[in-house]
Design a protein around this nucleic acid. Sequence first.
DNA 1: CATCTAATTTAATAAATATCTAATTAGATG
DNA 2: CATCTAATTAGATATTTATTAAATTAGATG
Lengths: 198, 198
Amino acid sequence: MQLDKVVTYHKALADPTRIRMLILLAGGELNGGELAERLSVTPATITHHAAKLREASLINERRDKNTIYFSLNHYFIKNSAAATEELIYRGAEGGETMEEKNEAMRASVIRNFFTAEGRLKSIPSQLKKKLIALEHMVSRLEKGRSYSEKEINAFIKQYHEDFATLRRELIMHQYMFREKEIYELNPRELWTRWEALS
Amino acid sequence: MQLDKVVTYHKALADPTRIRMLILLAGGELNGGELAERLSVTPATITHHAAKLREASLINERRDKNTIYFSLNHYFIKNSAAATEELIYRGAEGGETMEEKNEAMRASVIRNFFTAEGRLKSIPSQLKKKLIALEHMVSRLEKGRSYSEKEINAFIKQYHEDFATLRRELIMHQYMFREKEIYELNPRELWTRWEALS
DNA sequence: CATCTAATTTAATAAATATCTAATTAGATG
DNA sequence: CATCTAATTAGATATTTATTAAATTAGATG
């Protein structure tokens, strides 16, 4: 992790409006208009701030017709702070840090297993890679919201035809819980559970 | 933890020169001139940046003659990052915040280690508890006033017989400064340096 | 194609910030 | 007291940034 990235990250969070955007997004995805409304600013201002947050990888975006929905990128919110400490204490010089290795791994899996349109080419067989892929998909779901089986199937099919297998994997690895026919994200911190794996 | 503090913290780290200051300080304390030299800026610039870092409690300062030595405040560097996540995810709504937990901890230590008359039953061995106890005592001293060694001893004896040990702890943990035989409270806010500890 | 919608870009402005030089202050020391 | 040293303050400048109104774009839909 180099200086620039850490600075970019902190700049992104060095503004009250942007922090409030993130707090709102923690409650579930929202589109630009809704954010503008709830923060009492114009849509142009939201575009401006979204660019900063995007630059620091703190948010994801999803388009539905003319509307763009924003959501948190839990992975980077969690890891960037740790990267700051690592930079300060281990310095900028030598040695690839754990953060960098993990991020490189993650980027590589997403590059190789997902198409440009965001679909999953194939289900990775190696556990670590599989978890990265599952986590990548699931990061688009809303925390705390209930989904019917139908909705979940549709959601997964955006990524891959074999929704049954993937749905089972999500449950097996506890990214989601099933209560009768209702699915819900596991509210516990389960991001980056693959970091320790080899 | 409120919005303002989190923003102040991130603003402090949203500048490459300041991050480089912290990286240098991670290698040990340095004075203003040395920092200016190694960062290729003027002393005035260091003063400017030090003010920002101080505002976010990221550094400590110690004066020796005309020279001011800066060092990292490890507690806040560790603590503040976690506070950001907490603010984003717990936002405004319920759930016990870190603040509340810390306050409960503090109350508990004061209840258990101090008698009804306010004397210290024993010196806590666990660092966190010890800091809470020291802070509790020192909060009775006047900020900005000078105390002779005799006065300090008498003050501490109100709490505990072993004034020598406690006096040493106060200096060691920078709650007070000693200049020759004169003691003075550290004018900087260093309260709650124990919050990040476990 | 014409129209509608949500978001982005552009241009402008006001506020904040990083940096420097020069002047000043706070202590130390001869 | 005079001088030296390290740091701070003041003043100036250039850059960045937050925000908005107005114009434009990208995509959906009749």
